[in-house]
Design a protein around this nucleic acid. Sequence first.
DNA 1: TTGACAGGTGAACGAACGTTCACCTATACT
DNA 2: AGTATAGGTGAACGTTCGTTCACCTGTCAA
Lengths: 188, 188
Amino acid sequence: MSTKQYGKIMAFYEQHRRMPTYSEIMRLMGFKSKNSAYKLVNTMVEKGLIQKDTSGKIVPRQLTLPVRVLGTVEAGFPSPAEEELSDTMTLDEYLIEKREATFLLKVSGDSMFDAGIMPGDLVLVERGKDPKAGDIVIAEVDHEWTMKYFQKVNGQVTLVAANKKYPPIVPKDELKIAAVVKAVVRKY
Amino acid sequence: MSTKQYGKIMAFYEQHRRMPTYSEIMRLMGFKSKNSAYKLVNTMVEKGLIQKDTSGKIVPRQLTLPVRVLGTVEAGFPSPAEEELSDTMTLDEYLIEKREATFLLKVSGDSMFDAGIMPGDLVLVERGKDPKAGDIVIAEVDHEWTMKYFQKVNGQVTLVAANKKYPPIVPKDELKIAAVVKAVVRKY
DNA sequence: TTGACAGGTGAACGAACGTTCACCTATACT
DNA sequence: AGTATAGGTGAACGTTCGTTCACCTGTCAA
């Protein structure tokens, strides 16, 4: 069983947004018998490449197709031989925990610049989550929305920017923490 | 047709990693006839919530489940009423173009700190892509891998760090551009 | 009061589904 | 020479699939 066959199945999945049936795998691989497809699938299931439903239907191991994860930047790219060993990961599962409570916000302003969050970036925030000290939060202070570090200075909640230009904010009367920033995504 | 029904179908999709059959939708909704499910699906298809295969099979509109996209940080969170109007996006489709050529690398070192890329971040890189001036690239210079800005100074390729601590590199003999950085992902 | 219409029921259809069994090669290893 | 073993063929099975048709409510407008 080659990785090429797995690739064909996953290409089908990406195109049709569902896994192929056995007849379709048969055509995909050029087999003349459904049974060949059936056996192929079974060995793939044994290897953990794909899975089967309780009703026997073929399903992918993850909803999202994985991306290969290499080591660090300094380690660079492995040789094609080692590449097979490389780990894989799905971005979606990695970033999103509670989908219903998760939102994307576009960053405007440079108040979190020194934290590596730049104007134009997208922040992935989770609503209704209790902020811990040091978390980056989306807050409404005096009818204004901002993104700041959530800190406590002798028991008093303080919102601190990651940019010396902006002074810390100690909310006077009202402070609403709307969401906690869970991830930052920047696309070039 | 309520959004709750759509939610049930998508919850099924997330759990079983495939769309339900009509009989399954029937049970899911508490219908007593497959036909009710059939009609429900048809109106959902008309509204563009889900799609049908050429063979009549039900497939989701996207492979990945979408996340709601709000406006900017400053705009804050809309009221629940407006929320329905909010746009949605799938992270996977947004970030990944050519899946086979896409890799994730962990960032080590602070050479791109001022570009908002910090140690521990993940960079999503695409292999075999021609770098343009200003792109961030993963390069091998004199047997060392680094992440730098790809620049041209009077026709001469130069690798510039986004951190004044590090001087620009003008490759002497060998320079291999392995990949171009397409996105940065940071998780807290 | 009538009629349209959206939504649900129930039964039926052929086609396609996943699965099984028996058989057929090749190649590789005693 | 013999025999496992991996991979492909071909036909058959009961089940479930998507789809259709006829019928049955309600609700709301004319």
